[in-house]
């Protein structure tokens, strides 16, 4: 039985690690993990490569290892591995230039499939958005924060690249991600006791469960999907309902006040305020719901969680968090896990 090789870039990150953990379950798949840093918790069965993406040797690697698919999960959103703020220029280098290199190398090495993770925020929140934005809707991410601008740049580049190359590229656009881990901008926002809202605005919101992010990326890879797909849980709900269902209370803020406050220098970069509203204010004001019909018909992926179930899952996790002592502490088992994985490779 010949094993098929999949390369996960950014394997030390949240999504890379989770994807790796799912992929190693399939004996037919050989998982290579590439990242600039060492993984904190290595996954058994993954062959780690510690290197920078922007490297001419990447083509060589893809060729000699006969990589069939790349799951490109590198996206630096703010902090680098040492916990310092990344400059916008560095982030641009890593995110946009990195993606360009990966696509170019993949094409040169004859890789069959690349899967990219993007966001439905690239459509931008605008008052004249249709209720459901399909994949052909114009992108307006360039007006947003730096990280969103970079997503937009990547999307533009991929669309351009697609026109001239026959590489299969699946771009999955996800709305806010919700689930158990609490580690996404939407969960950060909803997890506050009083998430701020704009007074008099209550847009319909959409979300996707973590499990469906993993599921859809693997699904797209396995089926050789080519194209752009919105992937979201079925259902929409007003933002205020989502906040209340999580068990928190929305804090309404006058929107002229909020917008003007944002203009004060330094406010946008204030980590506290950025935590409170981790995306542009427009996303709390106007609709940016994505149409998922293409996901159902063309990608043929059916999310495991509906929106209500996903929100319910997050609420459960929030409630459990109060009982900190009940949950197994990761740091305690880390050492043993590391030891075990080392002896595993020694065998």
């Amino acid at each position: 039985m010949e094993r098929r090789t999949v390369l996960i870039t950014g394997v030390a990150g949240r999504w890379g690690r989770r994807l790796a953990r799912q992929l190693v379950k399939f004996p037919i798949v050989r998982v290579l993990g590439l990242d600039i840093r060492q993984p904190e918790r290595p996954v058994d069965g993954v062959e780690y490569i510690e290197a920078d993406l922007r490297n001419p040797l990447l083509v060589e690697l893809l060729r000699t290892e006969q990589v069939e698919a790349i799951l490109h999960m590198v996206f630096a959103s703010g902090l680098d591995q040492r916990g310092t703020q990344l400059s916008a220029e560095d982030a641009f280098q890593i995110n946009v230039m990195g993606t360009m290199e990966v696509l170019a190398a993949a094409h040169a090495a004859g890789v069959r499939q690349v899967v990219l993770k993007s966001t439905t925020m690239v459509y931008g929140a605008r008052f004249n958005n249709p209720l459901y934005l399909n994949e052909d809707a114009p992108l307006h991410g360039q007006e947003g924060m730096p990280s969103l601008r970079q997503r937009y740049e990547i999307e533009k580049y991929v669309a351009d690249f697609r026109r001239n190359h026959d590489l299969h590229i699946a771009v999955l656009r996800f709305p806010g991600i919700i689930g158990k881990s609490g580690a996404s901008s939407l969960m950060q926002y909803l997890g506050q006791p009083t998430p701020p809202m704009l007074l008099g605005f209550d847009p319909l919101f959409q979300a996707v469960h973590e499990a469906d992010v993993i599921g859809s990326v693997l699904h797209a890879m396995a089926n050789g999907a080519n194209g752009v797909f919105n992937v979201a849980a079925d259902g929409v709900m007003p933002l205020s309902r989502m906040i209340r269902q999580v068990g928190h209370l929305p804090l309404p803020i006058l929107h002229p006040l909020a917008y003007n406050l944002q203009r004060v220098p330094g406010v946008k970069k204030n980590p506290l305020l950025r935590r409170a509203v981790p995306f542009d204010l427009d996303f709390l004001r106007y609709q940016w719901v994505a149409d998922t019909s293409k996901m159902h018909t063309e990608l043929e992926y059916t999310p495991q969680y509906t929106l209500d179930e996903a929100v319910e899952d997050f609420r459960g996790a929030l409630r459990l968090k109060r009982y900190a002592d009940v949950l197994p502490r990761r740091s305690l088992s880390n050492g043993i896990r590391a030891f075990l994985s080392r002896s595993g490779t020694a065998e």
Binding site: N128, P130, L131, Y132, N134, G200, F201, D202, P238
Partner: peptide, 20 residues
């Protein structure tokens, strides 16, 4: 418009766009 937008939406009114 604040207040008007969510109210219209909750009452089943939809923005006049061909897609909608």
């Amino acid at each position: 418009l604040p207040f008007v937008a969510p109210l219209l939406s909750r009452l089943g009114q939809v923005q006049a766009l061909p897609a909608n």
